[in-house]
Amino acid sequence: MAVFLLLPSCWPAPSESASTLRAIAGEAHELMSRPGSDWLASQPAYQLPPVIAALKPDFISVHDDGIDIVTTAFFDGGWGYYVPRSPQPSPGQLFRHRNLGHGVYWFHPY
């Protein structure tokens, strides 16, 4: 039974720091402006802006509606940060997201 009590503490958690969230948002918009800015963990981290690189993402995927910064990949979605291109993303885009503030959302597996 103790194993089940410890499992939630092992799940990834987002940063709650306002300065970090603002930096993630700014760097994410910078990455979205670059052509072909998808990134895999096998690529050198120096290709990423410093705050996003410090998150040690497994991969980053740029979409028409925003960017996913996946910090822990999982077979059905993983955990990470989502920054929409629009300041007001549609609710349909956010069904598994929690608003952290400063235009940054935290997502979890389905």
Score class of each variant (00 low, 15 high):
Pro35Asn: 14
Ile60Leu: 08
Pro8Gln: 04
Ala23Glu: 06
Phe107Leu: 06
Leu31Gly: 02
His29Cys: 08
Phe74Cys: 11
Leu100Gln: 00
Cys10His: 08
Glu30Pro: 03
Glu27Ser: 05
Lys56Leu: 09
Asp76Phe: 14
Gly101Pro: 00
Ser90Glu: 13
Gly78Glu: 02
Pro91Trp: 03
Ser90Ile: 06
His102Leu: 09
Trp79Lys: 03
Phe74His: 13
Arg96Met: 14
Arg85Thr: 10
Ser33Glu: 12
Asp58His: 12
Pro50Tyr: 08
Ile24Arg: 00
Ser86Arg: 15
Ala54Trp: 00
Pro109Gly: 05
Leu55Ala: 01
Pro44Ser: 07
Val104His: 00
Ser15Ile: 05
His108Met: 12
Gln88Arg: 15
Tyr105Thr: 00
Ala18Gln: 14
Ser86Ala: 12
Gln93Ile: 15
Ala28Trp: 03
Leu55His: 02
Ala41Ser: 11
Phe4Thr: 14
Ser90Leu: 09
Thr20Tyr: 07
Met32Tyr: 03
Leu31Phe: 01
Ala73Leu: 05
Ile24Trp: 00
Ala13Asn: 11
Tyr105Cys: 04
Ser17Ala: 14
Ser42Asp: 11
Thr20Asp: 09
Tyr82Val: 02
Gln93Lys: 15
Ser86Thr: 13
Val62Pro: 03
His102Trp: 07
Ala45Ser: 12
Thr72Cys: 10
Gly26Trp: 02
Gly101Glu: 01
Pro35Tyr: 06
Pro14Tyr: 07
Met32Gln: 06
Arg96Asp: 11
Asp58Met: 06
Pro109His: 08
Pro57Thr: 04
Pro8Met: 06
Pro35Gly: 13
Gly77Gln: 05
His63Thr: 15
Cys10Trp: 12
Phe75His: 13
Ala45Leu: 09
Pro49Val: 08
Leu7Lys: 13
Ile24Met: 04
Gly66Arg: 06
Gly92Ala: 13
Asp38Ser: 11
Thr72Asn: 14
Arg34Asn: 10
Leu5Tyr: 08
Glu27Leu: 09
Met32Arg: 04
Ile69Gln: 01
Ser17Asp: 14
Gly80Ser: 02
Phe95Leu: 15
Pro49Glu: 03
Ala2Asp: 11
Val3Tyr: 12
Leu40Asp: 14
Arg96Glu: 10
Tyr81Cys: 02
Val51His: 02
Pro57Tyr: 02
Ile52Cys: 06
Gly80Glu: 00
Ser33Pro: 13
Ser17Ile: 10
Ala18His: 10
Ala13Arg: 15
Ile60Glu: 00
Pro12Asp: 00
Gly66Ala: 11
Asp76Ile: 15
Tyr81Trp: 03
Val70Lys: 00
Ser17Asn: 14
